[in-house]
Computed example of a mutant assay.
Amino acid sequence: MSIFSSPRFLRNVLLADAASCLATGAAQTLLGEPLAELLRLPPALLSGTGLFLLAYALVVGLVATREPVSRPMVGLFIAGNFAWGAACIALLAGSWVMPGALGQAWVAAQAATVLVLGELQWLGLRRATPAGWA
């Protein structure tokens, strides 16, 4: 059986999303000042988005562990991931912050991660059977 056809595929992708947001959110919240200096990003941006990511991780984790998985919530997560990716790209393309090379890599890694997770969630949503949906 392919990993993509597994009945747990979407749940696993949601858990990966929650874990990545938890790790990033914790780093940005707990290490805000030193990370801001290292990345040359505003501390308020890092701590604000870090707190958001922690809350988001909690919600995604709760949805991923409930039976059945809420189809509307997964749709919201997909939209949120694509919006986060677009915001990361806009931050890098804009001129209101000037991150250093590591900051650019940090933001680009977030963009790549959420875009891949959003695409995998979309794939999982399309392949999931209606019986497991709320």
Rank of each mutant, 00 (worst) to 15 (best):
A36Y: 09
P99T: 10
G94Y: 06
P43C: 15
N12H: 12
A79M: 12
L62V: 06
I78L: 14
A128T: 10
A55M: 10
S20P: 06
R11S: 08
L38H: 05
V97T: 04
W133S: 02
A18Q: 01
Y56H: 08
S47H: 14
P34C: 13
E119H: 12
A90S: 11
L115E: 00
F52S: 08
F77P: 12
A86D: 01
F77C: 11
G94V: 09
P7M: 07
Q28V: 01
G32E: 03
P99K: 11
A112I: 09
W84T: 03
L30K: 15
W106N: 03
L15K: 01
R40V: 12
A79D: 04
G94H: 03
L102P: 09
V69F: 07
L22P: 05
G118M: 12
L46N: 10
M98N: 15
R40S: 13
A109P: 13
R11T: 00
S2I: 08
L117T: 07
S5K: 12
A90Q: 15
L15Q: 00
S2C: 10
W122K: 00
L54G: 15
M73K: 15
A108G: 15
A90V: 13
V114P: 07
V74L: 07
L35Y: 05
R40I: 01
V114G: 05
C21N: 03
L54E: 01
L115P: 04
L38Y: 02
T29S: 06
E37D: 15
W96F: 10
N81W: 02
P7L: 14
S6I: 12
P130W: 15
V60A: 10
A18H: 00
G103Q: 00
C88E: 02
L38S: 05
L54V: 03
G50S: 04
A128I: 07
Q28W: 03
L125G: 05
L15M: 14
A18V: 06
P130K: 15
D17H: 02
M1E: 05
V63F: 13
G103V: 01
A26P: 10
